[in-house]
Computed example of a mutant assay.
Amino acid sequence: MSSRIDPAAYEDDIGTVSSREFGEITRRQVRRYARAVEDDNPLYTDVEFAREQGYDDLVVPPNFLSAVIDPGAGKPADELRRDGTAPDSIPVTIPEDAMLMGGGQDITINRYVTAGESITEEETFTDIYQKDAEFGTLTFVERTSEYVADEAAPCIECDKTLIVGDAP
């Protein structure tokens, strides 16, 4: 149960920053993601169209970066939690029988990322708190990610909320 998570135990971790490399975002990744989310915007699929609009290459859909849980190969199946997530995917230890749920994202686009750029994510653990619900205590884990290419300023910023609850 998520009520077994003690937010006070993580107070000193708030403000902790972790970094991960996405590497180069490929045209194939952009096209496959656009297809998966059923977005037929030609900026995501047609290089010539994207260039005619002033971009260097295909535009990466803004929510692509924040949707990627692990840009690498991922953990072997026998190292994943039963819900399919890696135990170290967030900065809080989650009880094995808890369920993780997306609680929303707020994305700020400073400039669009295009295929061919190499991206680094800098994620800051910003808060942890609990709320009581009809079916038990929910723990909210908040993080802010900045996605950076070659320049110092982030291309995209994303505030993310993850909710930890009791598995059904």
Results as ranks from 00 to 15, higher is better:
residue 16 T to C: 01
residue 16 T to V: 06
residue 17 V to H: 02
residue 19 S to F: 04
residue 21 E to L: 10
residue 21 E to H: 11
residue 21 E to T: 08
residue 24 E to F: 00
residue 30 V to N: 03
residue 32 R to I: 14
residue 32 R to D: 14
residue 33 Y to G: 06
residue 34 A to D: 12
residue 35 R to F: 12
residue 38 E to A: 15
residue 39 D to I: 03
residue 45 T to M: 01
residue 45 T to D: 05
residue 49 F to R: 09
residue 52 E to W: 01
residue 54 G to L: 08
residue 54 G to V: 11
residue 55 Y to H: 15
residue 56 D to C: 03
residue 56 D to A: 14
residue 57 D to M: 03
residue 57 D to S: 13
residue 57 D to G: 03
residue 59 V to H: 09
residue 60 V to R: 11
residue 62 P to K: 01
residue 62 P to Y: 08
residue 65 L to M: 11
residue 66 S to F: 02
residue 67 A to W: 04
residue 67 A to T: 14
residue 68 V to Y: 09
residue 68 V to R: 10
residue 69 I to L: 15
residue 70 D to I: 04
residue 70 D to G: 06
residue 71 P to H: 08
residue 74 G to D: 09
residue 75 K to D: 07
residue 76 P to N: 09
residue 77 A to L: 12
residue 78 D to I: 01
residue 78 D to V: 03
residue 79 E to N: 05
residue 79 E to P: 03
residue 80 L to F: 08
residue 80 L to G: 07
residue 84 G to K: 10
residue 84 G to M: 11
residue 85 T to A: 07
residue 88 D to A: 06
residue 89 S to N: 04
residue 90 I to F: 00
residue 91 P to G: 06
residue 92 V to T: 02
residue 93 T to A: 12
residue 96 E to M: 01
residue 98 A to V: 02
residue 99 M to R: 13
residue 100 L to Q: 14
residue 100 L to H: 00
residue 100 L to R: 15
residue 103 G to R: 00
residue 103 G to M: 04
